[in-house]
Simulated assay, not measured.
Amino acid sequence: MGSWRGYSIAIARLKSQIDWDSIDEEPVDLVFLFAVAKEDESDNHVKLLATISQVLCEDEKVSELKRSTNPETFKKILLN
């Protein structure tokens, strides 16, 4: 099996909230999954995680993400 390099991200917007073992003890309806190759020496995934964390601290941005209707709009909100 060949080695995989880099990272991938998957995002799920759930139809209904689920309980999550979160610090604020609030249920979640946005789930982010990062898959990072063990051999990946870049910090690009860390930079992306920092960007996402900043966006998720803004209530209006979170509302926009939840109202988005397609992946392109979601990505634009998340990365701008």
Score class of each variant (00 low, 15 high):
residue 1 M to H: 13
residue 1 M to G: 15
residue 1 M to C: 13
residue 2 G to T: 13
residue 2 G to R: 13
residue 2 G to H: 14
residue 3 S to D: 14
residue 3 S to W: 12
residue 4 W to E: 14
residue 4 W to I: 13
residue 4 W to K: 13
residue 5 R to G: 08
residue 6 G to W: 10
residue 6 G to H: 12
residue 8 S to Q: 06
residue 9 I to W: 02
residue 9 I to L: 02
residue 11 I to R: 00
residue 11 I to K: 00
residue 12 A to D: 09
residue 12 A to M: 05
residue 13 R to F: 03
residue 13 R to H: 00
residue 13 R to K: 09
residue 14 L to M: 09
residue 14 L to Y: 08
residue 15 K to E: 07
residue 15 K to I: 06
residue 16 S to E: 08
residue 16 S to F: 07
residue 16 S to M: 08
residue 17 Q to P: 13
residue 18 I to F: 01
residue 19 D to I: 11
residue 19 D to T: 07
residue 19 D to G: 11
residue 20 W to S: 11
residue 20 W to H: 09
residue 21 D to E: 03
residue 21 D to T: 07
residue 22 S to Y: 05
residue 25 E to P: 09
residue 25 E to Y: 14
residue 25 E to G: 14
residue 26 E to T: 12
residue 26 E to W: 09
residue 26 E to Y: 14
residue 27 P to A: 06
residue 28 V to K: 06
residue 28 V to Q: 03
residue 29 D to M: 03
residue 30 L to F: 08
residue 30 L to I: 12
residue 30 L to N: 10
residue 31 V to I: 03
residue 31 V to S: 02
residue 31 V to N: 04
residue 32 F to Q: 07
residue 32 F to W: 05
residue 32 F to K: 03
residue 32 F to D: 09
residue 33 L to P: 11
residue 33 L to Q: 15
residue 34 F to V: 13
residue 34 F to S: 13
residue 34 F to Q: 11
residue 34 F to D: 14
residue 34 F to P: 11
residue 36 V to T: 02
residue 37 A to G: 12
residue 37 A to N: 12
residue 38 K to G: 10
residue 38 K to F: 09
residue 38 K to L: 09
residue 38 K to V: 10
residue 38 K to S: 10
residue 38 K to P: 08
residue 38 K to H: 07
residue 39 E to P: 10
residue 39 E to S: 15
residue 39 E to I: 11
residue 39 E to F: 11
residue 40 D to L: 06
residue 40 D to T: 06
residue 40 D to P: 03
residue 40 D to F: 07
residue 40 D to K: 03
residue 42 S to R: 15
residue 42 S to C: 15
residue 43 D to W: 04
residue 43 D to R: 03
residue 43 D to M: 05
residue 44 N to V: 12
residue 44 N to G: 14
residue 44 N to P: 09
residue 45 H to P: 15
residue 45 H to R: 15
residue 46 V to G: 14
residue 46 V to E: 15
residue 46 V to T: 14
residue 46 V to Y: 11
residue 48 L to Q: 11
residue 48 L to V: 07
residue 49 L to S: 15
residue 49 L to W: 08
residue 50 A to Y: 08
residue 52 I to G: 06
residue 52 I to D: 03
residue 52 I to K: 02
residue 53 S to E: 05
residue 53 S to K: 00
residue 53 S to A: 03
residue 54 Q to R: 02
residue 55 V to P: 02
residue 55 V to H: 01
residue 55 V to K: 00
residue 55 V to T: 01
residue 56 L to A: 04
residue 56 L to H: 02
residue 56 L to K: 04
residue 56 L to P: 06
residue 57 C to S: 08
residue 57 C to I: 00
residue 57 C to V: 05
residue 59 D to H: 07
residue 59 D to A: 10
residue 59 D to P: 08
residue 60 E to N: 11
residue 61 K to D: 01
residue 61 K to M: 05
residue 61 K to L: 06
residue 63 S to E: 02
residue 63 S to C: 07
residue 64 E to R: 11
residue 65 L to V: 04
residue 66 K to S: 08
residue 66 K to E: 06
residue 66 K to G: 08
residue 66 K to D: 09
residue 67 R to F: 10
residue 68 S to V: 00
residue 68 S to Y: 02
residue 69 T to K: 14
residue 69 T to E: 15
residue 69 T to H: 13
residue 69 T to L: 14
residue 70 N to F: 12
residue 72 E to H: 10
residue 74 F to V: 01
residue 74 F to I: 00
residue 76 K to P: 03
residue 77 I to A: 01
residue 77 I to H: 01
residue 77 I to T: 05
residue 78 L to Y: 02
residue 79 L to Y: 04
residue 79 L to E: 02
residue 80 N to Q: 08
